[in-house]
Design a binder for these strands. Structure first.
Lengths: 268, 268
DNA sequence: CGCGAACTTGATATTTGTCAACTAAGGTGG
DNA sequence: CCACCTTAGTTGACAAATATCAAGTTCGCG
């Protein structure tokens, strides 16, 4: 039974304790080669999960959080509020994404991390991360890869905002979410749960809420998307990607490009 | 005689070979504590400088460069070209900035790095970087800080583009360049060399060239900037920063916030 | 001095924002 | 289960920001 991309059940908590379907592991397999021992270590990180209710911040600007947060289910986002009350969402954090891996170095958050929709996260003590980076070079490299892939995503968003019109920009964003959620087993071939509001989307794309609404209608009219009851369907993924000129290279999913291996048990 | 922010002479090549005025060192002092030994090592990186003529790329998309590049003089930029010919500049690389420190991990460039205006850079073999990160934890941490500060800048650009109107956005960009260039001794209190064209600026801010021209006139009329013969003057820095709502926190210049120390020889 | 690139200007079209009203949907207490 | 209430989504009219096009004009350089 395929999981259908709902991410509704905490499927990574395998009763046998084996490293299965953990979104962090699933993601890192795309950027680095891990051994079974690495996977066990990563699996152990995900023990202490915590439910974060909607509208609650995970970390706020100017804070110096003691723990690192890792999203396991649902979405969180990076955002900034401006003096005039405007909000810009700068990143979506999906299962397998770290929220604040960098704070130890930078000292202080320059933005907030929140979850207008609620999510499940694990809190990892900073000491655990320090230990990881000190003793496990393969894992360290994998985490570094994840950081740099985030940076690539940020650059693509900049291109998106600067050079693409609202309709293509929105389509591009949907394509990105589809791929990123597929990676971690939270989307099936053509749909995923997407509980955000049109206002959230507006603050993501840097356009007004009214305009979001109109562009959405246009995309729906063109048959490019269907979005209701908090689930986004993409009838023809190839067509949406073409419309958005979506090229996933910037996500740097190098290791198992064609879905070969690792997700399935290896045949020895 | 103050250097006046020209960066025109290769002042970091001190005839005595001592670590003076090297932009990389100057910058890293803001993010990490370095010992004299660290400074010597960093100084040694900067030996083999190379002049890169205008309009030439340093690295191109999809390349796997063997060397890491460090800007020593002038500007380079990260950019992407879209299928329709549009260009988005995603970052300016000023003296002391690394161009492609991340490529070894990610494997392949997801964007190009070029210098429409010419610059001087040093090429550092990847092996040297590997050695640095293996044996010099303080330097490694400093480089990591620089990477994360770049990421913070990227986020701020996203806010800039998404939520600020063109005039404030442009003013914000000028404020950022002033501060970043001051850090490395390439700007004085209120001006710096700025050889970019209005078209470059348009592709930076994500607006049309014509609009850039009109916004520039508006800023000039308000007495916020003066820009001629490739030099940008800011008559009243405080006023421009207020206009742009510029808060440099995102640059994470934590170590010598108030200009105390290190630039001058320590007294003891 | 002349040539090409960069800058400037005006007229006009398009995109996007704002405001205000209205409708639909979801959740809660009675 | 319904009435109510709040929030999210939708619509139309209009205003503002920004893009496009085409024609000058200036500047820098050989």
């Amino acid at each position: 039974m395929p999981r259908g991309g709902s991410c509704s059940a905490p499927f990574w908590c395998d009763p046998r304790g084996a490293a299965v379907s953990n979104p962090l592991i699933m993601k890192l397999e795309y950027g680095a080669r891990l051994t079974d021992a690495d996977r066990d270590i990563l699996q152990d990180l995900s023990s202490r999960t915590r439910r974060i209710p909607p509208h609650q911040d995970i970390t706020s600007e100017s804070e110096r959080p003691e723990n690192v947060h890792l999203v396991m289910e649902g979405f969180a986002c990076r955002y900034k509020l401006l003096p005039n009350g405007k909000r810009q969402i700068m990143a979506y954090l999906v299962p397998g994404d770290f929220c604040d891996l960098h704070v130890a170095i930078l000292g202080e958050m320059d933005h907030s991390i929140g979850t207008p929709w609620g999510c499940t996260a694990v809190e990892i003590p900073r000491a655990t991360i320090d230990d990881l980076t000190a003793h496990h070079p393969r894992i360290t490299r994998a985490l570094w890869w994840a950081t740099l892939a985030d940076e690539g995503t940020l650059r693509e968003w900049l291109v998106n905002m600067g050079q693409r019109e609202a309709d293509k920009q929105m389509a591009h964003f949907f394509c990105e979410m589809l791929v990123r959620l597929q990676i971690v087993g939270c989307a099936n071939a053509d749909s995923f749960n997407f509980p955000i509001s049109q206002t959230d989307l507006a603050d993501t794309l840097g356009i007004s809420g009214v305009h979001v609404n109109r562009v959405l209608q246009e995309l729906r009219a063109k048959g490019l998307i269907a979005w209701k009851s908090k689930r986004l369907h993409i009838p023809d993924v190839g067509r949406l990607k073409a419309f958005a000129e979506f090229d996933p290279k910037y996500l740097h999913l190098t290791m198992r490009e064609n879905g070969n291996s690792r997700a399935e048990p290896r045949l020895s």
